[in-house]
Design a protein around this nucleic acid. Structure first.
Lengths: 362, 362
DNA sequence: CAGTGGCAGGCAATCGTCTGCATTGGTGGA
DNA sequence: TCCACCAATGCAGACGATTGCCTGCCACTG
């Protein structure tokens, strides 16, 4: 029943050439070593037989698996699907595939996945999970395994990476709130061990100063993780602060959702009692009520760029390390308004507006 | 700089045995062919050298790639990340990895991905994309490639599959609406070429009859795809119907979101003017305002079960084909209420309730 | 006419692992 | 004592493709 697979030897036999010649004819890189009519004969034979090269055998010989590992915290975090698609699409165009690993923020699991990737001889890694000074980085370097960081930064710029300009993004958020008239602006910071959390925190401080506002330490709470639960906890804390605040710049959208929950529980409403702005512009975040104002960056493109950088390293480009920053963009929706509630016109429209996150290109 | 990789031969040399012996000692299946102390010596040597078997070479020899292909429409559809995680987790436990392919509902793209998977010699396929009578199925059968369907059903039950009991689910939705007192209930049906869309449509008709209600053809609209846009279009259509309706059972949550958008545009509100119930209980759907009532099924488990079924087929279990149905569950939130608006107590709480979709186990 | 050079294609080794078969040495039974 | 048998291990040939090297062959040149 199962047709025996067609091998290079079969193709060669049918084209009446040596397998080596068939190999060269089939490979675009080496085709010019073969006379044109011979090559054509091989190509025809391959087509007639429905020949499909065995990637496994090829990998063994060339020591290239044409696969790369991608380590992310959790695919269920809506931030990642678009990024992963970006990676996969770019890789596919180059004949590569991605092996996805979810670490769940667990260092041990991360190491296990790393080992698995190495056992499968991936040609490179995209890491969205490393903490600053992660031992995995040293190990990859020792194994000559190309690595690209995503939404993370090597503190010494020694590794290629793709991320949004976090400082600039959070500055845009603060500027927006300050522009609406807020002065008591709180910040729910992300975990400070990851560069994203740290950069946004620093950006917040800098932006407040730039606007001549005091960054009251009472109004800065640090979340242990980028999760709804932590957002809820931190927001509850903020609501108890003396002096209060009229706006919150959350470290990311998940934390902002936590704020919504805290307001709900306290019987308060957004943006009347508290303006909230997030970061990331996750898919569907525009469907919340009120639709969340946030800082958008091109998720899909983060993926494609990361893949691109990795492919370059794999191909042996040894030039200077590229550190890519993508530009953030302020998206104003309904969750931010002047302090004390809506002054004039309603601040923003609901869903259905053109500002929805657009799907990935094809 | 890069350490030369440790091979089986190195391990054998260090343990002073033949590579064949080392191979047997390392493989649990064949370890009993080797004297215990010899095996131990090999194991020690392997550990000291940090030996990691080359999966590529192993695959070539054993004709098992220990990888499976997973074809889904689009990872960006929030329904899929939990399912994919389920698949990956179950596969990882068996030493397998998943190669994800997004078809975007494009048949040509689907074929291309299928070819790619075959070229990589995947040991099996999980398909969430096939249409009824898809030629890919015949081709897989011819190649002796195990296949499992997800959220799809082979009309003749000839292939293993995992899906929710759609008829039963939609019946629960209709029963809920009827129980609230609705009689003019509309249905936005999914595409009828996919078994999910068809089954829910049929279930709707049956459920209406069972409740002694007329399934007015005017109140049944068929969407071209399971998307927000189509939901919007269909809902707009429904709002123009004479006689009107007081409730909508949407073919899935995306279509339900489309209903929300249509209501927004028409200046109507949910559930006062129209009750809406979805299907799937997508992640974050409970964060909408109002939180969507819907039919939940265990996404993560769909993934694990599909992977399990596939692993069984790969292992050569040739028993009768298993067709698995998972039980749906009604989740009542704030988008459904008695006709004519809220009668008594407010129908449901907002976010923060215990009915949030729970994360994957572990 | 001999020598040189270059093109096309064949030969065979190789990648790392697995596995059917042969070989060794030892044991027990007739 | 001899043989059959078993357990433990060695041997070598796959698996399928790639690639360095070599061999023809032909044309051109001096």
């Amino acid at each position: 029943m199962a047709d025996p697979p067609v091998t290079l030897k079969d193709v060669a036999a049918r084209a009446r050439v040596h397998p080596a010649t068939a190999s060269r004819a089939l490979n675009p890189e080496t085709r010019l070593l073969v006379r044109e009519d011979t090559a054509q004969r091989v190509l025809d034979a391959a087509a007639e037989l429905g020949y499909r090269p065995n990637t496994v055998a090829r990998s063994l010989r060339t020591r290239r698996s044409h696969s790369v590992g991608v380590l992310i915290p959790d695919l269920n975090n809506p931030l990642f699907p678009p990024i992963v698609r970006g990676i996969e699409d770019r890789l596919a165009a180059a004949g590569y595939v991605a092996l996805i690993g979810n670490t769940d923020g667990d260092a041990e699991r991360e190491r296990m996945l790393f080992e698995q990737m190495r056992a499968r001889h991936v040609d490179g890694l995209v890491l969205a999970t490393v903490h600053l000074g992660d031992p995995l980085l040293a190990e990859s370097a020792r194994a000559d395994l190309p690595v690209v960081l995503m939404n993370r930064l090597a503190h010494d710029y020694s590794l290629p990476s793709v991320s949004v300009d976090n400082e600039r993004g959070i500055r845009m958020a603060v500027a927006h709130l300050a522009g609406l008239g807020h002065t008591r602006i709180a910040h729910i910071a992300g975990p400070q061990e990851v560069s994203t959390g740290l950069a946004r925190y620093r950006g917040f401080i800098a932006a407040m100063e730039a606007h001549g506002l005091a960054a009251d330490p009472e109004l800065i709470v640090t979340a242990k993780s980028f999760s709804i639960d932590e957002g809820l906890r931190c927001a509850q804390l903020l609501l108890t602060r003396d002096g209060g605040c009229t706006a919150v710049a959350a470290g990311n959208d998940m934390l902002a959702i936590g704020c919504y929950a805290a307001l709900d529980e306290a019987g308060l409403s957004c943006p009347e009692d508290l303006s909230v702005i997030g970061f990331n512009d996750m898919p569907f975040i525009d469907r919340l009520r009120p639709p969340l104002s946030t800082i958008r960056f091109p998720h899909y493109q983060v993926g494609t760029e990361a893949a691109q950088l990795l492919l370059e390293r794999i191909a042996g480009h040894t030039g200077p390390v590229k550190v890519l920053f993508l530009a953030p963009e302020l998206v104003v929706r309904g969750s931010t308004a002047p302090p004390g509630g809506i002054a004039g016109a309603p601040p923003a429209a609901g869903p259905g507006r053109a500002d929805q996150a657009s799907g990935p290109a094809r």
